[in-house]
C-alpha cells in the first residue's frame, strides 16, 4: 500500500486544460459583461507599462536638482512642470509609479498568502483554534489600519521592506476573515464530507479541494485590497512616513506640492490624480471580476 502522496499527484493534461477552460470562461464573462472592467484594465495596463519602461523613457533625471528652473508651470519642455527643486514632475511621477506598484503588489501578495493560510486552517479545523486565532485577528482588525501602519513604519524605519511589512500586517486580518467564511461553508458541503469518507487526509482536502474553490473570491478581494494598499502607501508618504526623499513617491510628491499649494496648485494636483487613477483602475477591475464570479448574477444572465 503506498502512502498518501500529498499534492504531488500527476495531473492529466486533460484536467489542466479543462481547468484553464473554466477560468477562461469566467474571465471572458468579466470582460464581456462589463465595460468598466475594460476601462480599469486599460488604465492599469498603461500605468504598469509606463512604470516598467520608466528608466528608458523619463525625459529628465527624477532626483537631480535644477534650481534655475524651479516651480515652472507645464510647458513643452516640462510637460507637467517642475517642483520646488526644479525636478521634472513627469519624470518623478513615472519613477514613483514603480514604488507604488511594487509596494502595493508585494504587500498584498504577502497578506493574501498569510491571511489565506490562517483563514483556511482556522475555518477548516474550527473549534478552539478558530476561536483563539480569529479573536486575535479581530483585535488587530479593531485597530485603525492607517494608525497601525503609521506606528509600525515609524518604529521599524521607513524602508521599502518595512513599509511592505506594515501594510501587509494591516491586511492580514481582513484576508483571514475573507478566506475563513467560504471555508466554513465548504467544510459543510457534501463533497468535503464525501472526501473525508474516502479517507483523504485533511491537508489534501484543504489544499486540493477547498483552496481552489475559495481562490476566485480571494483573487477578487486581492485586486480590491491592492487598491487599498496603494492608497495606504500614498497616505503614509503624505504624512511623511514614506520612503525617504529624494526618492520620488506619489504620496511624498503630493506632500511637497501641498506645502507650496498657495504658489502652485499643479504640484499637488498631478500626483494626486496619479494616485486616484491607479486606485480607481484597481477598483474597477476588482468590481468587474466580482460581478463575473457572483453566482447570483450568473443565473440572471
Amino acid at each position: 500500500m503506498s502512502e498518501d502522496t500529498g499534492a504531488a499527484i500527476p495531473q492529466r493534461p486533460s484536467e489542466l486544460t479543462s481547468l484553464l477552460r473554466l477560468s477562461g470562461q469566467a474571465l471572458r464573462r468579466a470582460f464581456a459583461s462589463n465595460l468598466t472592467t475594460w476601462i480599469g484594465t486599460a488604465f492599469f495596463g498603461t500605468i504598469v507599462l509606463l512604470a516598467l519602461l520608466a528608466p528608458l523613457i523619463v525625459p529628465f533625471d527624477p532626483i537631480e536638482q535644477d534650481i534655475v528652473s524651479r516651480l515652472q508651470p507645464p510647458d513643452m519642455e516640462h510637460w507637467l512642470g517642475t517642483d520646488y527643486y526644479g525636478r521634472d514632475t513627469l519624470s518623478r511621477l513615472l519613477v514613483g509609479a514603480r514604488y507604488s506598484l511594487v509596494i502595493g503588489l508585494t504587500s498584498i501578495v504577502l497578506a493574501v498568502v498569510i491571511g489565506t493560510l490562517i483563514g483556511l486552517f482556522a475555518g477548516y479545523f474550527g473549534g478552539r483554534l478558530d476561536i483563539v486565532v480569529m479573536q486575535a485577528m479581530d483585535v488587530v482588525l479593531a485597530f485603525p489600519a492607517l494608525i497601525l501602519g503609521l506606528i509600525l513604519v515609524a518604529m521599524l524605519g521607513a524602508t521599502v521592506t518595512n513599509i511592505v511589512i506594515a501594510i501587509a500586517f494591516t491586511a492580514i486580518p481582513p484576508f483571514a476573515r475573507i478566506a475563513r467564511a467560504p471555508v466554513i461553508a465548504l467544510r459543510e458541503r457534501e463533497f468535503v464530507q464525501a472526501e473525508r469518507a474516502l479517507g483523504f487526509s485533511d491537508m489534501r482536502i484543504m489544499f486540493r479541494h477547498v483552496l481552489p474553490n475559495i481562490l476566485p473570491d480571494i483573487l477578487v478581494m486581492a485586486s480590491l485590497w491592492m487598491a487599498t494598499a496603494v492608497r495606504t502607501e500614498a497616505s503614509l508618504a503624505f504624512i511623511g512616513l514614506g520612503i525617504a526623499p529624494p526618492t520620488p513617491t506619489w504620496g511624498g510628491m503630493v506632500r511637497e506640492g501641498f506645502e507650496n499649494i498657495l504658489d502652485s496648485y499643479s504640484l499637488a494636483l498631478f500626483p494626486s490624480l496619479a494616485v486616484l487613477v491607479l486606485v480607481l483602475s484597481l477598483n474597477l477591475i476588482g468590481d468587474g471580476l466580482r460581478d463575473a464570479i457572483d453566482p447570483k448574477l450568473k443565473v440572471e444572465a
Binding site: 486533460s14 484536467e15 479543462s18 481547468l19 473554466l22 458541503r189 457534501e190 463533497f191 464530507q193 464525501a194 472526501e195 479541494h209 481552489p212 474553490n213
Partner: peptide, 13 residues
Amino acid sequence: FQDPYGSLDPRQT
C-alpha cells in the same frame, strides 16, 4: 449524499 450538486468538487473533473 443527498445533494447531487454539492457532493462533487465543482473544480475537479
